[in-house]
Amino acid sequence: MNNTQATLALASAANESTAPESRKAMIQLQGVGKHFGQLRVLKGIDLTIHHSEVVCLIGPSGSGKSTLLRSMAFLEEYDEGQINIEGQLLGWQNAEASGVARKRAPQAKINQVRQNVGMVFQQFNLWPHMTALGNVTEALQQVRKQSKAQARERALAMLDKVGLAHKADAYPIQLSGGQQQRVAIARALAMEPHIMLFDEPTSALDPELVGEVLQVMKTLAKEGMTMVVVTHEMGFAAQVADSVIFLDKGEVVARGTPQQIFHDAEHPRLQQFLQNYLDRNAFWQDGKDAAAAKP
């Protein structure tokens, strides 16, 4: 085994997956599918995410992992199956009935079902004409109807939590990518979500800035937040995740603890994916022959 592979394995061994305290199902997916015209992007996804569980979705590009995550916030309309958020059906008026086209639930209902879901995007999606503080207080004032003072207090607390209280009056354009993403996390956290979704939160960041964002996410995980993370950061997944799900071509190919996925990978596609990752990221190899690095 080369160094990187060994590190991953060690990390996953250290993260002994203790079964989550409460087995309450936060998100339930049953038979979820989606197609774009002829292309089937998601097929027969069955998944349950429990309270305080950290789930990482990994897989090659085009595997559908972002689509799956976005479906959990109904930013993508899934075509088959159902997704329940804390027991409530998301997005559609009724459960699937054969032959009958489902009607989209009214926007107010969709908002109500997903009001405890927070999301962090790859492109941060901060509003550039507001300061960091403004971005965080906006929803508190407009949606939760808090007073300016209340919102400000909560927002500063959240910004402090992500280490950016001193940048409260800065505009996004004045912040680095890592800082912008942390503001985005604070913005989502301010609404006191029960579930946090992360869509490749560090993929748009310069390598040196990735760490500060992952650190915030690790803290959140330690505090018991239910998290679903689509990521290419295998180290993060190995260290922090309770379960890792490998998607390929729209299907769940493998799932398990980090130990099972990274160390004991059995499925050939998963092995290929991990090998590709190691080839890209390993920078010190014992022996010149690349074949020596194969598990």
């Binding site: 926007q107 908002n111 997903r114 999301m119 995007f121 492109q123 004409h129 906006e138 929803a139 949606v143």
Partner: peptide, 29 residues
Amino acid sequence: PGGQLEAAGLLGLNARQMLVRIRVPQAVR
């Protein structure tokens, strides 16, 4: 960028709030 409106929608802002607080200020700028 559409992502800003997605984030707004997810945080619970309705269409009117999005128009007044996010879309018009930026469109004018």
